[in-house]
Structures are given as structure tokens and as C-alpha cells.
Design a protein around this nucleic acid. Sequence first.
DNA 1: ACTTAACAGCGCGTTACCTCA
DNA 2: TTTGAGGTAACGCGCTGTTAA
Length: 297
Amino acid sequence: MGHDQNPSSSGLHLVLGLSLTTEETTTTPPPPTMVDDHLYLLKPTPMKPYFSSFTTETEPSLTLGLSSTESYLNQQHVAKNKMDGNHKPHGEDPVDLSSHEASPHSVASSFSTGRVVKRERDPSCEDVEAEATERFSSRVSDEDEDGTNARKKLRLTKEQSALLEESFKQHNTLNPKQKQALARQLHLRPRQVEVWFQNRRARTKLKQTEVDCEFLKKCCETLTDENKRLKKELQELKTLKLAQPMYMPMPAATLSMCPSCDRIGRGVSNGGSNKSPFSMAPKPHFYNPFTNYSAAC
DNA sequence: ACTTAACAGCGCGTTACCTCA
DNA sequence: TTTGAGGTAACGCGCTGTTAA
């Protein structure tokens, strides 16, 4: 599973089946409690709303506050509404990430944890917008205004999960542009997209590890059985040798040992031209448990 | 050319929240 | 209604590669 980093696949071909109508924005936002099975309890934070414009939809102005948690949850709230069809066009979104770009450092400075303060890299970079948003959203812990950590858990909607999965199939890592685009499309923070991909890669690896483990177990069982069989065969040979002292000894390595066809000492002698109870392999034929059975079988 | 600090991105282990049986 | 297990979003840390001073 190599990383698909070729330029031809750098663009996302993802479509969300959502209607972006402004009239739907008049839907009254649910109270900050359990909205449905995708949004969870919002810790009551009556003070310092992060974006005052959240409740005044016609006022796109921003008011910076300290409650990152509420900001985050408001984003989820809006995201949820959007995924359900209750959303505005991009520019009118009161918590649209682009709205933060005017002063990302101001926003970032309101967080007390995380590696927030980042050095400006390349101002001429074409992806300054993404960089700014990324700085805002990356490595930021959710904290209440009182400084206590209040981790809230987002539940991605089916649409969001499907889109992320689809994107993951195309490339299991994202460059900043792809991350930004996906985040916009999903109405998530780039950090959330990044985390999702990290966890997804981890799950993929874990799953593969489990598969490998099962495979190795089977190999171990096969080898154990083979070992038993060979020991038994060796015992039989020794017995045979004792019974027939004049029997010509034969190097064990010259015996074919493929367990898939179980032809050792059999089959060939039945109707075959070889009168010996054992066949003489032209060259040693060892069974490799990590590959398929030999084509010779 | 070399060093070093700052940073981004990732993997990994873990925590915490949430759902469901 | 409670509870424990499982799933997973999010976090923290360390490592590595890149970039600029």
C-alpha cells in the first residue's frame, strides 16, 4: 500500500450531496445539548462566546474570546447543520475557517496549551491561507476559559466518514492543500482531518498486523504438523532400515517434502515406473510456508 | 560548507468520550 | 437503570526531514 503521491491524483474528486441554500440557515440551531446522535453534550459555557456571530447570522463580524471549546463545538454544530442541509454558502459561514485568517496568531494566542506559536515559514508560499488556518487549528488542545481541559468528542456524520474513507482510498496521506480542501469540504478543522487520517492509518496497520499474525499462526501450525510428519517419516525409515539392512540409504534432503500434495513415498509407486517406494527429486524441494505451494505440486 | 534552532508531519501509545448490548 | 466492552476522536511525545539563519 504505497502512498499515492503522484500529481495526477493530487486533486480531490469528492462531491458532497448538499444543497447550499441560504434560506435553510434560518433554522434555529438546536440547544447546546444532545442535538442528535451525532452531536454530544455541550458543556455549558455562558460566558465569552467565541464567535458572537454564531447567533447573529447576518453579522459576519467576529468577537474573539477564550472559549476554544465552545468554538470547536460550535463548529461541529454548524458542521452538523451543514451536513444535514442547514448551512450557508461558504463565505457567510460565521465560523468558516477563512474567517480566522485575518489574525491567526491572535486566535492561536488565546490557547494556553499545544505547540501553537509557530514561526512564519514562507510568506510567499501560495498556500499561505492553508498555512494560516493550519497554524490556527493544529496541535491545539481544547480548554475552557478557566484553563481546565474539556475534551469533547466529535462524532463524524456518515457523510463525513464516507468522504474521508473515499479520500483515504485515493491517498492515505494528505498534503496541506489536500487537507485544507478536505477540511473545507467536510466543514471540519484541518487538524481534525489530520487526526482522522492518522487514526485511520493506525487502524489499517493494526488490521494488517492482525492479518499477519493470523497468517503466521497458520504457518506455525503448518510447520508443526510438517515437523511431526517428518519425524514420523524418519522413524518409519529407521524402522524400515532395521528391517532391511541392505536397503540403500538415501539422503533425506533428496526427498520431496511438499505437504500440499502429500506425495512422499506414495502415488509415484502406484503404477509408476519407479519401483522404489520413494521418489528421487531432481533437486531438493523444500516447502516455504511464506509463499504459496510450489508450482511443482 | 557546516551547525543549529524552529518547524511540520508522522507514528505510536494513551486517554477520554460515547454507544450499545 | 446501570455497567462493562468496544470504537474512535483527540492528545502528548518522540523522531525525522526540511528550511532558514
